[in-house]
Every structure is written in C-alpha cells, then in structure tokens.
Amino acid sequence: MNKPKLSTPSPRPFAMRKAAAAIVITALLLTACGKAAPAGTAQDTASKPEQNAHAGHGAAPAPKEADVKAAFTFSPDKPQAGKDTLISLQVTDSANKPVEKFDINHEKTMHLIIVSKDLSYFNHIHPDYKEKGLFTIANPFPAGGDYKLFADFVPSGESGTTKSQWTTIQGDAAKPAAIQPDGNLTKTVDGKEISLAFDKLQAGKEVNLTFNIKDGGTKKPITNLQQYLGAVGHVVILSEDAEQYLHVHPTEEKATGPDAKFMTTFPKSGIYKIWGQFQHEGKVFTVPFVVKVP
C-alpha cells in the first residue's frame, strides 16, 4: 500500500501572519504618537511673539515678561524740571541677578524713549552701559509733570524687550496739549516737507506706513537721506494713554528717500501719536503725526 505523501506547509500563510502582526504593531505605535503631549513637553513650548517691532529678532523665543526686570532710579530722588536728572536702569533676571550681556540693536545697546503725559514732549536717547546690567544717562526734563520712560534692549541671545515706568518731575507744569488727530498728514520740519500715507488704517491688521520727504522750499524729492542708527529711519508709536507702544523699523533699511516705508500693526482702535525720525546732511529731524485708527 502506498504511504500517503506528507505535505510541507506553504510559506505563504506564515508570511501573511507576520505581515498582519507588523500592521497591528504599527497601528499601536501610531495610536500612541497621536495622543496629545502633556503640557511642558517640546510640543508645547512655542511662545507668542511680542506685540512690538522687535518681535522676531534672533532665533530664540521671546522671553517671558517675568524673566527680565528693569528697575528705574533717579538722582536726585525728586527730579527738578530744567535740571539734569541722572536716570539709572538696573536690568536683572528672574533670580534678581544682573543681566550682563546684551546684543547691539540698531547700533545701540539700549534705546530709551521719554514722553510727557500729553505726548507733546518726545526724546529718543541712548544710555551708557556701565557693567553688571547697569545703564545710566542724564536728561533734563523741560517742565514739571508726569513722564513715561520706555527702555528697549535685547538680552544676549533673546528677543527684544521693552520695560516702562512713569515718573513725576517737580516744577512748573507746561499747559497740557490736546492730542487731536491731524486733519492734514503733511508737515514741515527743519526745512523738510514730510507727508505720511497708509495703505489701509485698521486695528489688528498689518498696515504699511510711507513717509515721503521733500525739500520744503524747492519741493524736490530728497534722495540722499543718511543712515540713522543703521537704517533710513525709525518710528515710535504710542496710544494717547501711552499704554500701547510700538518701535518700528523700516522694511527697506538701506533706502535713501524720498520714500521711507514701515510696516506695523495697531493693536486696537483709538488715537495714536507717531514720531518718524530721519537724518539728512548730518542732522536728525523728528516729525510727529496724530492719527485715529478705526
């Protein structure tokens, strides 16, 4: 009697079982990866850019407001109008240790903007860096009253930081000037005729600001503007209550006129004062405009 043939198992079912197992393992892995990462992991560390013109400087994320502090002090303790006041700023970290290294930002280690409460007085100066996070500069305040100081600086390797403080100056106060929107956005300053134009003025949306600069007498376009702090110009914008602050740099830094273009976003509706600063033939001139943002 012939013995029955023993059949060898086909390799195909084994391969199919192996492939099925691989699919199950892959599915489990994908399910695990799809779960939301807990707060504090690498997937949850993105920080929002600061609402000012310095957002985006460098590759480091913007520092949290509490990470850097700036303590303003004045000498004398009760500054007098018309006399030099020594302004000191001590910059420290969250552990109250001095921040010792700063990046150069538009040719300076720190930009200090000083405005009066009614925004009629404006000064853009640059404190000297001493050491161990200390900056100092002397400034004569023109009249008694309240002033706000804005310090712009960049701790080394971090994003731009702005710190501010109100201070009161002793002495006779100047008559308050009303902050009224300009009906005509053309001004003459230091023999220059400057016009300001917007593409679309609206809160919360990017807006292009274009300053057109001509000779005030001949009306010829000025095409030889000089670099001011490493750019064709600088723009500072404040809301009428001095709570919304923007320090804006040009979109074409090496431009020479007659147009100087800037881009920014007004954070909310309201009245804002704009100061444009430019340099021509060795002299810096400042032109102010007041606008109402819908």
Score class of each variant (00 low, 15 high):
Glu281Trp: 02
Asp182Lys: 03
Leu112Thr: 02
Asp172Gly: 11
Gly233His: 00
Pro140Tyr: 15
Ile237Trp: 03
Asp259Trp: 09
Asp241Thr: 07
Ala27Cys: 13
Pro250Thr: 05
Ser75Ile: 15
Glu50Gly: 04
Lys200Glu: 12
Glu107Gly: 13
Leu149His: 06
Ala37Lys: 08
Asn139Lys: 08
Gln165Phe: 05
Val207Glu: 10
Leu134Glu: 14
Leu238Tyr: 12
Pro221Trp: 06
Asp118Asn: 04
Lys101Tyr: 00
Ala37Gln: 13
His280Arg: 08
Asp259Cys: 02
Ala42Arg: 06
Phe150His: 04
Pro221Asn: 03
Ser88Gly: 06
Lys205Pro: 05
Tyr147His: 10
Val291Lys: 13
Pro176Asp: 08
Lys292Val: 06
Ile23Ala: 08
Ser195Pro: 10
Val248Gln: 11
Pro9Ser: 04
Ser164Cys: 02
Pro250Ser: 07
Leu209Phe: 04
Ser88Lys: 00
Val115Trp: 03
Phe278Pro: 07
Ser47Phe: 06
His280Phe: 09
Lys175Arg: 15
Phe262Arg: 14
His111Trp: 13
Ala231His: 01
Ile87Leu: 15
Gly230Arg: 00
Ala46Glu: 08
His57Ile: 14
Ile87Ser: 13
Glu193Asn: 05
Glu65Cys: 09
Glu243Asp: 09
Ala138Cys: 10
His111Met: 05
Tyr245Met: 07
His247Gln: 06
Met16Ser: 09
Gln90Trp: 11
Pro267Phe: 12
Lys175Pro: 10
Gly160Tyr: 00
Lys192Glu: 00
Ala15Ser: 05
Phe135Gln: 03
Gln80Val: 07
Phe14Gln: 07
Met16His: 10
Lys205Arg: 14
Gln170Cys: 06
Ala95His: 15
Thr73Asp: 11
Asn208Ala: 06
Ser94Asn: 12
His111Pro: 11
Gln51Asp: 14
Phe135Glu: 00
Glu281Ala: 11
Lys48Tyr: 13
Ile237Asp: 01
Gly217Gln: 11
Lys214Glu: 14
Lys220Pro: 01
Ser164Glu: 13
Thr161Glu: 07
Ala22His: 03
Gln180Pro: 03
Lys97Ile: 12
Tyr245Val: 08
Ala70Trp: 00
Thr256Gly: 02
Leu6Pro: 12
Pro9Ala: 05
Pro4Ile: 15
Ala81Arg: 15
Asp172Trp: 02
Glu107Val: 06
Lys273Gly: 01
Asn208Glu: 08
Met1Arg: 03
Glu240Met: 13
Lys18Asp: 00
Thr136Trp: 02
Val287Lys: 12
Lys292Thr: 13
Leu201Lys: 01
Leu86Cys: 13
Lys219Glu: 00
Ser120Glu: 01
